[in-house]
Design a protein around this nucleic acid. Structure first.
Lengths: 209, 209
DNA sequence: GGGTGAACTTACTCGCAGTAAGTTACTGGG
DNA sequence: CCCAGTAACTTACTGCGAGTAAGTTCACCC
């Protein structure tokens, strides 16, 4: 009985490495997003993919490594969304506004991505912290570029000051995102973007001295 | 032999609850500060205090609970330092500046406190996250008060906007602190405070619109 | 059709958070 | 002085989850 009905399609179990890695990463993103870093065990993910735990370790090295891979991919998507908004805007002032709106809207529309990014704090220790910083660095660079565009063009730029501002904006938007997510009646993306824009637009021009 | 030299001072082992709690909290603060949340085990802390683990659980409930107690005390000290600076300043403009300087200087001078606060992200999950938010809330309130002082007095305030600004400043200063600590040649407290002050001072006045 | 390498598994170890159930020292009343 | 009663404290565990050593099975190529 058992042998006659089965063998038509032996449900190809083995896949090549790249495909399996993607499969694992997708599952990890889903589960980390639902249950958080602490609430997720490697066994959970392995079971979900239908694979054994050591395989995941072979591909991703550690739980931190796997989480970092998820984080990195999600942040890249977020960066894309914001970059697009910034680059297609008509002028520098609108670019900044559009960037803020894109940031908060993306996080609204991708609650799982959002959870993973919040849990980034989990990587506070060890070498993973540095890797997490590098993932964020692209974002800070984008912001720094925007800030430069908002400065009067004839002014000699103080790079240290630009870094301070870019780090500030990055930190501010992250905290605002967390605050919004824990607060049902928090302001809309548009309202927040408008407020930030108003403060910064004036403020940035005072940097020229 | 053994009995004759010993009993003079039986090294009073038992202490009353309050004293023991303080002792545990001090040790926890030190060890969490040195090795981070993940790198610290409850057994480490118990050993350091010279007490058994279940006692700590009896007093603090869980590892998160103990960490939160450390965090809470340290944040209170930080809040005090900043409040003092703000309250003793001559006018609103200087209050803001002094507050920023106090923040960064405190963190420079208390590297252990600093580490614990960075690791706050560890509490992203569970009820501890909410508790951690409440610990931060005092700070946001202080900032909101400062922001109100910086608004033109005759203007009807938009509380939503003030919350946005306060959250932003809180997030910005936290990220700047992290950035500074990972970056040896990062700007001085004074330089950062000056930059923030310049941007916000102008920017806040545009909120009256 | 057999050998070689990549994909994958079984069956563990070890560290650590958390706990059940007891034991020891101090304290105030008889 | 002693002896409840209670607060401080311990021994000795459980369970779970990260990480690993040592294989085993499949697929492809000569």
């Amino acid at each position: 009985m058992t042998s006659t009905t089965e063998p038509a399609v032996p449900v190809k179990r083995r896949r090549d490495r790249a495909a399996r890695e993607r499969e694992i990463l997708d599952a990890a993103e889903r589960i980390f997003g639902d249950r958080g870093y602490q609430g997720t065990s490697m066994d959970d993910i392995a079971a979900q993919v239908g694979v054994s735990k050591p395989l995941i370790y072979q591909y991703y090295g550690s739980k931190d490594g796997l989480f970092l891979a998820c984080l990195s991919r999600l942040r890249a998507q977020l960066l894309d969304a914001v970059s697009d908004a910034v680059l297609t805007a008509a002028d520098a002032e609108q670019a900044m506004y559009a960037g803020f709106v894109a940031w908060f809207e993306f996080l609204d529309e991708h609650p799982r991505a959002w959870s993973v990014i919040v849990d980034e704090g989990m990587l506070a220790a060890g070498p993973a912290a540095q890797a997490a910083d590098e993932v964020r660095a692209d974002f800070v660079e984008l912001i720094a570029t925007m800030v430069r565009l908002n400065l009067p063009p004839n002014r000699e730029t103080d790079e240290e000051e630009i870094q301070i501002v870019a780090q500030s904006i990055s930190g501010a938007t992250e905290r605002l995102a967390i605050w919004r997510s824990r607060n049902d009646n928090a302001p809309s993306p548009a309202k927040i973007a408008e407020t930030l824009q108003r403060i910064l637009w004036q403020g940035l021009h005072t940097l020229q001295d």
